[in-house]
Amino acid sequence: MPEKTPVSDILAGEAAPGCAKKDPILVADHVSRHFGGLTAVDVAHVEIPRGSITALIGPNGAGKTTLFNLLTGFDKPNTGTWTFDGQSLGGVPAFKVARRGMVRTFQLTKALSAMTVIENMRLGATGQGGENVFASVIRPLWRGREAEITEQAEGLLARFKLDTKRDDYAGSLSGGQRKLLEMARALMTRPKMIMLDEPMAGVNPALTQSLLEHILSLKDDGTTVLFVEHDMHMVNEIADWVIVMAEGKVVAEGPPSTVMNDQAVIDAYLGAHHDVDLGTIEGRLEVAEEMDSEAVREEAEEEAEAAGIPVEHATPDAEATPAKTPRKKPAAKDEVTP
């Protein structure tokens, strides 16, 4: 099991959301993406440390995949700039992002099932002149490179234990094998940074351990890894650094051991008021107080008045109110009156 990168090698200052890194490979500023009224991503600043494994976690709908899409050019942000390896990537199309060394995989695996495993792999290779339409008709121009590519592909297939499937159609592979193939295919491009979107989703537990080892071996080769994952065991096991997103924002950062105990992370996953009973008006008033939100308070107070509970305006004394009146009561009264 390789050593984790020590926190002191990653961090340039204090660990906080959007904190500076000693050697960031990817730096993003003010990246936001709105879908109608919904703000899917609104990241003020984030840095991904070079040569280490960074996990991006957060509850469903936190904007992790959207951020992936934005950074890799598969979606266009409403605002924001970001640089990869010192070069700006804003507005750069997806295929050019990949050529610069930032390659991604997809949450829903995109193995090309009507092509064989080896053809999938060859497709990932770079520098094949035979992909030019004019050069393609003259085989001697690309035969040499094709042999090199095939050798590289066979090496990777052996490493990912897919070499026995070399000539099978990718469509005949199991879900876990497809994940492996997609990762191996991405590595054919020899990326500087690989972005894995839920590499463990749907993978048979027997394959999990070998997949973890593959990801760790990427780091040994000097590749930066950024992955989205819901499996906290995996995050703990291999990540050097964890970035937590919730509601489109980065809410916490740190090494896995400390970030799991961070209040913001617990709030993001379990809800900030998981210990308060929101089924009661008192509970909601308490939340309103804490959030310092007029709108929530007014709403709760209106409800309380309707329910006949005395409310001392703008005081947190709601706890003292005796009855835990069910919400439905006024409606029931209305039914009786006529």
Binding site: T72, F74, P93, A94, F95, K96, A98, R99, V103, R104, T105, F106, K110, A111, L112, S113, A114, M115, E119, R122, L123, G124, T126, Q128, G130, E131, N132, V133, A135, S136, V137, R139, W142, E146, R185, A186, M188, T189
Partner: peptide
């Protein structure tokens, strides 16, 4: 040829091919 391979990839899933650095 490799050109045809890229084309077959595009036929099945453009985004996969795009993510590998090809100008779809």
């Amino acid at each position: 040829s490799p050109w045809g391979r890229v084309l077959r990839g595009i036929r099945e899933d453009e985004d996969a091919v795009r993510s590998l650095g090809k100008n779809v």
